[in-house]
Design a protein around this nucleic acid. Structure first.
Lengths: 133, 133
DNA sequence: AAATTAAATGAGAATGGTTATCATTCCGAT
DNA sequence: ATCGGAATGATAACCATTCTCATTTAATTT
């Protein structure tokens, strides 16, 4: 029960070979482009299976779920509302304080999701440039 | 432009009169039950309009968006993965550290979303009870 | 107050990400 | 080689949300 099939291996290889945050559609397109076309349903099931196995990680954004490599240290995300870029950051103190807040409410924490929204350095820079011209 | 119509007032009253986190469907049903039935599209548009006007606040969860009163101090949420209960908490230090993390990346932060997942005190208690019997 | 104009409503169609269905194929274990 | 439980793929179904568009409502102007 729970097999690492050819298709799942292809999905896993794809994700492991990059630092991107992939959604199902992108994985599907990329595999197709590489000639290993896989049914979209299989992609969804594969991503779920891989995540359950701890082989990939995910962030659930408002509109879609995105998957990334699991072999990184824990981190949270900053998303640029202008260009969509996703940056990662981690702050051990924030983690600790979350635990503290949970404890205070008698809450048995199993996970969390922290996303910062704003404009990335590049977009801020570009709009500043434009302002100067 | 942007009117506080009868329908929107009804939605606003509903939300203001409770501490719940409502989704569009629930608002729709509750209004119908009270005899002020409103089209579901109007509920969605109304909630959006009220939020833009700063009259209600929202949290975007994976599956659906939920709305709550806006007249509370800023807070984040803990969601019980067992019973679905939503609790609120706030921690000024976490906020400060988020800003710091953003700054460090040259990120111009405009907002954030922090959600803790786990089991609420009640659900933890109940499963402990069952264990004892 | 009547006319004008912009915004809001409601019903239903459409969208888009994701999951379910089901017949078929694959793979591991007997 | 066979049996049985997974996985696959195509497609239908789901479900929250948005869009369309004809109609109604309300604010503004004459």
């Amino acid at each position: 029960m729970k097999r690492l099939t050819t298709q799942r291996q292809a999905i896993l290889d794809l994700i492991n070979a990059s630092n991107r945050h992939w959604d199902a559609e992108e994985v599907n397109r990329e595999l197709a482009d590489r000639g290993h076309s896989v049914g979209i349903a299989t992609v969804y099931r594969g991503l779920t299976a891989l995540e359950e196995a701890g082989l990939v990680a995910s962030i659930q954004l408002a509109d879609r779920k995105r998957y990334e490599r699991a072999d990184k240290q824990h981190h949270d995300h900053m998303i640029c509302t202008e260009c969509g870029a996703i940056e990662e950051f981690s702050h051990h103190k924030i983690e600790a304080l979350q635990e503290a807040a949970a404890l205070e409410k008698g809450f048995e924490m199993s996970g969390h999701q922290l996303v910062l929204f704003g404009r990335c350095a590049r977009c801020v820079g570009e709009s500043t440039e434009r302002g100067k011209l």
